[in-house]
Simulated scan of single mutants.
Amino acid sequence: GEAEHDEVEPERGDDLLERLFDPYTGADLGDAMSPVMRTLTWLARLHDDLLLGETGRRLNGIGSALVGLVVVTGVITWWPTWLSRRRSGRLRPSAVRSTNAAVHRQLGVWGLGLMLVWVVSGIYLAFPEPFDEAAWVVSGDDLSGIGYQALTWLTYLHFGRFSAAVQIVWVVVGVLPAVLVVAGVGMWWTRKVRRSVVRTPAGAARQWAGPLWTARATSVVLVGVGCGAWALYTWANYREEQQVERFLGAVASGQYRRAHAMWDGDEYRFERFLADWGPGGRYTTGGSDIEVIDSTTQGAAVTVYIKTAAPTPVALDVDKETMRLSYGPTDE
């Protein structure tokens, strides 16, 4: 049967307002999303493009490049010092200083690979064009070639979308940059205190304020960033997944014209659409449940994977600006 409400999306300029209306009385039923979902969607957009659209996405890419510069210069700074201490057999710095330095050094060394992966993938998601060109040089028009496969793996590595266990690890490890920043600030604070405080018993007690402050701040950051990372991961592609859910809902209720209107362009004609999604269609035959199972960001679009009657999941691309649907490269 028909849905008990219709969703209307009035637009004014770049503003989009989603409301629910009773299709029989026209009564306004309220927001299409709850305040919590709207807040999480806002946070996801803040992470994705700084709420500035394509300009924000480019700024994110520039920020990723700057983070890469910090990582590289950090390695350059650490490497000679580590070699020198190893060759001379000098003891580590005093405990007051090493509390912050050890955290920063150990996490920086062990997290170097992941940091570089996030840097490169962050640049790719903001500036996909040069990466796509490089993939074309390597693989030509073969979308299953090593060049395009490398880009797919780069995207998967950025989000950790291999399994639920890996995703949980990625959420936890995602606080690594924040902890490095806090530890780095703690190292700077310790040096400042060591220079300014007279070395007396009272002064020595004050010197421990740096490590103590760092430990407390790190705990707060770990909890806060961990919750934020979980929310961002869970709802990063919420708008796009909801668009696909709306499409599937229209198909399930037999509103094929409405479902077809969500697709991008005129090439996907209604007759072909019915062959795929209509009664007894390629993806609907057999009566199996059709549901969203995963999603991943692909530059200016989000690829949403859905389970259908087909033997493999169907990939649908959702344009982030227009919210129009199209088939992913493997399902065209």
Rank of each mutant, 00 (worst) to 15 (best):
D264E: 11
W110M: 13
Y268I: 08
R97M: 11
L180H: 02
L51N: 14
G249T: 05
A95T: 05
F162V: 15
R45T: 12
M115R: 06
M262L: 11
A301N: 11
R239A: 10
G254P: 07
S196A: 04
W118L: 13
C227S: 12
H158L: 04
S144K: 13
E321G: 08
P201Y: 08
L316N: 07
E7A: 05
V314N: 04
R216Y: 02
R199Q: 02
L29D: 02
T303G: 11
H104L: 07
L222G: 06
A178Q: 04
A65F: 00
V197L: 12
V166R: 13
R246T: 03
Y305Q: 15
G278V: 04
D266A: 14
L83I: 13
L20I: 10
W188G: 08
V175L: 09
V103P: 01
A101E: 09
R246G: 01
E54Q: 10
Y283E: 07
G30L: 15
P80K: 09
L91V: 07
P80D: 02
R38G: 07
S84L: 09
R87I: 11
V67E: 01
E245V: 12
R161H: 11
Q298M: 11
E240M: 13
G249I: 07
V193K: 14
T322Y: 04
R324N: 10
L83D: 00
T312S: 09
S253W: 06
V244R: 03
V36G: 07
G328A: 13
A164S: 14
V185D: 00
G174V: 04
R272T: 09
Y305F: 06
W235Q: 15
D28M: 13
L59E: 01
D319E: 05
R269S: 08
H104S: 06
N237V: 09
A95C: 00
S121D: 00
A134C: 02
E11H: 10
L50C: 06
R269H: 11
A95Q: 03
R272F: 08
E133Q: 14
V67F: 02
A202M: 04
V225D: 02
V221W: 02
T77Q: 03
Q106G: 05
V318W: 01
G53L: 07
I76Y: 00
D141R: 15
E7W: 03
A231T: 12
S219G: 14
Y238H: 15
V198G: 00
D276Y: 01
L59H: 03
V117I: 13
R246P: 00
G160Q: 12
A315D: 10
T55Y: 01
G26C: 11
H158I: 04
Y256H: 12
V197T: 06
V182M: 02
A27H: 11
L325Q: 07
W189S: 09
T25V: 12
V72F: 01
F270I: 06
W188V: 14
G122L: 01
N100M: 09
L51A: 13
G68I: 02
H47V: 08
L69R: 01
W42T: 15
L274G: 04
W263K: 13
Q106S: 10
A259S: 13
V197C: 05
E321Y: 02
V103E: 10
E271L: 13
V198R: 15
T297H: 03
S163L: 11
A44P: 10
T303Y: 00
H47F: 03
T297K: 12
E18R: 15
S219C: 09
V314T: 12
G174F: 05
A44T: 12
M37P: 03
R272P: 01
Y233L: 14
